[in-house]
Simulated assay, not measured.
Amino acid sequence: MRSEMETAIREANLGNDDTDIARRYLIDQVPQIDIAAEFGWERSTISYRLKRILRKVESTAQKLHFT
């Protein structure tokens, strides 16, 4: 499962920041507030970006037949 998640994140072509956010949130299970602190952003910014990130990762996982 972890390797499939890593592959889906990589194949989603999210860009550097969003890839890092996806890995920290989905794989490392770091809370949004902690990710925001790491980036120096507001938690609301992470929440907003995660909505798009999760849609792209899920779509990619489906295309790769992971779901």
Rank of each mutant, 00 (worst) to 15 (best):
E11C: 01
E11F: 11
D18I: 04
E11R: 12
S47I: 13
I33M: 14
D28E: 15
Q32E: 09
I46D: 01
E6Y: 05
K63P: 01
R24I: 02
K63L: 10
I27K: 12
S47D: 07
M5D: 07
D34W: 07
R23P: 02
G15R: 03
M5T: 07
I35D: 05
K56E: 07
I46H: 07
D34F: 08
K51M: 05
L54A: 09
R52N: 14
I9Y: 06
R52L: 13
L64E: 00
R49C: 00
E11W: 04
T19H: 07
G15W: 03
A36P: 05
Y25R: 10
I46R: 02
D18Y: 12
I35A: 02
R52T: 13
N13D: 08
A37N: 14
I33N: 13
E58Q: 13
A22V: 05
D34M: 08
A61I: 02
G15L: 04
A37T: 11
D34L: 12
K63Y: 07
Q62F: 10
R43Q: 14
L26V: 06
Q62N: 13
D28Y: 12
S59P: 03
G15N: 03
L26D: 00
I21D: 01
A61E: 08
E38C: 10
L54H: 13
R52K: 14
K56N: 06
V57Q: 01
E38D: 14
R24T: 08
G15K: 11
W41C: 09
N16V: 10
K56M: 05
D17W: 05
E42I: 09
T45C: 11
L54I: 13
R55F: 14
I35C: 03
R55Q: 15
F66A: 04
A12C: 11
G15A: 04
E58P: 02
T19I: 02
W41E: 10
D18G: 04
V57S: 01
H65V: 08
A22F: 04
R2E: 05
